[in-house]
Design a protein around this nucleic acid. Sequence first.
DNA 1: TCACACAATGAATCTTCATTCACATTATAC
DNA 2: GTATAATGTGAATGAAGATTCATTGTGTGA
Lengths: 207, 207
Amino acid sequence: MAKKVLNRRERERERHRAEILRAAEEVFTEKGFHGASMQDIAEQAEFAVGTLYKFFTGKEDLYHALFLEKVRKIDALVGKGMDSETEPVGKLKRLIEVNLRVVEEYKKFFGLYLREIMGKFPVSPATQPQIRRLRNQIVKRVAEVIKTGIKKGVLRKADPRAMTMVLLGMLRGSAFIWVEGRHKLTLKELTEMVKKMFFEGALAEGK
Amino acid sequence: MAKKVLNRRERERERHRAEILRAAEEVFTEKGFHGASMQDIAEQAEFAVGTLYKFFTGKEDLYHALFLEKVRKIDALVGKGMDSETEPVGKLKRLIEVNLRVVEEYKKFFGLYLREIMGKFPVSPATQPQIRRLRNQIVKRVAEVIKTGIKKGVLRKADPRAMTMVLLGMLRGSAFIWVEGRHKLTLKELTEMVKKMFFEGALAEGK
DNA sequence: TCACACAATGAATCTTCATTCACATTATAC
DNA sequence: GTATAATGTGAATGAAGATTCATTGTGTGA
């Protein structure tokens, strides 16, 4: 019986932790790291400030935890997407689709995400290296796929690293511009455009 | 715009202002807006804190001034680059070249720049709209060039807005990835790759 | 029912700066 | 040379907000 009681407690605790993370996501995505106060987050979570410190050692730690949780989820989605195809071109198409779909799903979080992976000044020193490591796995995978595509003769002969850089840059950049705003474009249209441009380029046929 | 002739005092003052801006650039690019203190900047500039306030109304104002100065310079370069060509494809090529060259020249500043134009949470509320306005001019110009290219039949028939988005995204994103890091690629190689990819795509000939 | 472990609370504390301002220094005018 | 104006100074101020901790509340097992 003692064990069951403990379980209950533990589950409760876990739920509270998750609630705090949800609140933190809300507030951080709304106001950014520096604009968000622990007060804000506590209120959003309907806990007292002190309580947050029972779960996380501080503001940075909370941010860090939120970040890892999200990035893991995103990377898993992207990875699974690529797994679902066998041929290089198919894999790359899925990469583009999933990437942009994720952007939509995590639209609010995306602003934070990009600032963190892109800039220096990581909010928490521990966050960036971990995220980088996760990201590097994706980069390597994409480069590998492109290399295979070249070997098979379906992709143009060029430095795979550079192609990877351009492709990922294209995804990141256009997603950003899309999130930014005033677009009448649907995400679907953007996805199609990115695919077309990446594979076939901007020049008219035969030019 | 006859620049008013400045007497000794006024010139001195102008020089001091510029020195403070230089120091601010140093410190902000090093530590980011929130990581930089007025103390830091003052020390770097070899002035007392109080002095900074004789030139700028506050930290935000200083940041804002620095930003505008830089962005104006960058945009002028890009604009001039495009002016130097007459044909759409030539203009776009110049756009790519100049853009990436600027990235190299302003490498340190670039991190700040992107965070500011990209994210919400602008550091100073006044900065973002102004920068956006400047940026929009470039976007419009590029879209116009692309539209002309399509009309002339040298670019594929597609939504010019979307193409613009992808092209600018590609530039921004790949520049970022380049700045980020561990690249063996020279900027020249990256530039070539972006051009090739944008115009011709990734697929092998005849595929 | 009681006692006890654990969870939650939030006012009080501690830190970190941005900003100010009374004063000192220097340059210019007369 | 003295008066006046402009510049520069940096210790003192105040505000914001992260963190702590003494206290209060609650569910659990006897």
